[in-house]
């Protein structure tokens, strides 16, 4: 079982943090990864970080998701134009 998604810690406040996943941010609990630092990548399951990852490891997962993110963001900007 168990979906877990990598995200980056943008703000750290005690045991809770704001974590960024693609275009989404969410508060994530850090109780299980006390070593976490601002800017770290974490693997998130059910609102808790379950593991710190280095950036390269996280990016490997994101690369396997094979997202054509750049292109998508361009499109959304194009659509936002009047």
């Amino acid at each position: 079982m168990c979906l877990a998604v990598p995200g980056q810690v943008m703000q750290l406040d005690g045991t809770s943090a704001r974590v960024k996943f693609h275009g989404v941010e969410r508060v994530v609990q850090m109780d299980l990864v006390p070593e976490v630092k601002l800017g770290d990548w974490v693997l998130v399951h059910a609102g808790y970080a379950i593991q710190c990852m280095d950036e390269e490891e996280a990016r490997e997962t994101l690369a396997l998701l094979a997202q054509i993110e750049g292109e998508m963001e361009e499109q959304s900007r194009a659509e936002a134009k009047p």
């Binding site: 609990q29 299980l32 609102g47």
Partner: peptide
């Protein structure tokens, strides 16, 4: 849940 999930719930209980 399995061991992925149970620690998140344990941490919440604490």
């Amino acid at each position: 849940g399995f061991e992925t999930t149970s620690p998140t719930i344990a941490a919440t209980m604490i």
